[in-house]
């Protein structure tokens, strides 16, 4: 029998800056796009260019992810762009843990934890849902998924993902 390997690799991602942006996106969308340097994502979408990404979190909330070194400038730019507009811009870089789940069977790992139809989940979509017992969000990256969840459950989430990725536990019919 061939050596069994895990269904996917679980890698902690460090060093991301994150900004939560809340505003009327119809009114302030252009300003946010300009300040963040990314086009506005559509409903339940995410746009990624270079090392920045802008995700749609709710009808009036976006999440900007970028290298931590660029965080301070981005906060300033966003606040400047939204001056006079009812809005909320906050640094949430420390609020979440980030994991990459990569490998051919990464979909199967998520299929064990989230009530999401992953066959109907294309690149460019962002899904806020739950992974077992905790809220989380994920989207596709080359070779798998990026996942974010609250920082306090990082240990739980890692063990959860590694359990679901245990060698030999493919979902394929046997």
């Amino acid at each position: 029998m061939a050596e069994m390997t895990a269904l996917a690799r679980v890698t902690r991602v460090e060093g991301l800056g994150m900004v939560t942006i809340r505003a009327d996106l119809d009114r302030a969308g252009d300003a946010i796009a300009g300040a963040s340097g990314l086009p506005l994502p559509g409903r339940v979408g995410i746009v990624a260019e270079g090392d920045r990404a802008l995700g749609w979190m709710s009808p009036d909330e976006l999440l900007l992810m970028l290298p931590h070194a660029e965080l301070a400038d981005a906060l300033t730019d966003l606040r400047e762009a939204l001056r006079g507009e009812a809005s909320l811009v906050a640094d949430v870089s420390d609020m979440r843990c980030v994991f990459d789940l990569t490998g051919e069977d990464a979909d199967q790992v998520l299929a064990k934890l989230s009530p999401t139809d992953l066959e109907m989940f294309p690149p460019g979509a962002l899904r806020r849902t739950r992974l077992a017992q905790v809220p989380a969000a994920f989207w596709r990256i080359p070779g798998g998924f990026r996942l974010i969840a609250f920082r306090s459950v990082e240990v739980y989430l890692r063990e959860l993902l590694e359990t679901a990725a245990a060698p030999g536990t493919w979902l394929d019919p046997r």
Binding site: T20, R22, A23, D60, A86, S87, L88, A90, D91, V92, S93, D94, M95, R96, F150, R151, S152
Partner: peptide, 10 residues
């Protein structure tokens, strides 16, 4: 015109 954010874990 009010926005909230739960920053507990930040």
């Amino acid at each position: 015109k009010v926005y909230t954010a739960n920053l507990t874990e930040q």
